[in-house]
């Protein structure tokens, strides 16, 4: 059992190191992620955001524009997740009422 766990851990680490050989160098401007056009010919996401954020919303901070304007649905979902987490904490940890036969649950 213990041997299996160690084997799993080591093989997972070796797989990750092997996979990291395919990544581009850190900070490389010509990496696939920072390209101007995607394979289908549409503009690449991050360079499009950098170029048009100030023109669209007159706000210098590009992260704010992406967070609240371009990806507004995404942020609405995240906020709902936070509210749900708070409600679940309350529902799990509230003081339990006693049942009808007087026994505490």
């Amino acid at each position: 059992m213990k041997i299996t766990n160690w084997l799993l851990l080591i093989s997972f680490g070796a797989l990750l190191v092997y996979a990291s050989f395919g990544l581009p160098n850190r900070g490389d401007v010509s990496a696939n992620m920072h390209r101007e056009k995607s394979l289908a010919g549409s503009p690449g996401a991050s360079s499009y955001y950098i170029r048009n954020a100030y023109r669209d919303a007159e706000t210098p901070n590009m992260v704010t524009v992406i967070l609240a304007d371009y990806r507004g649905y995404d942020t609405l979902g995240e906020e709902t997740v936070i509210l749900t987490a708070g409600l679940i904490c309350y529902l799990i940890l509230r003081k339990k009422r006693t049942k009808l036969d007087g026994k505490k649950t």
Partner: peptide, 9 residues
Amino acid sequence: ADELRSLGI
């Protein structure tokens, strides 16, 4: 238009 977007943000 762009000022309205700033206000909405």
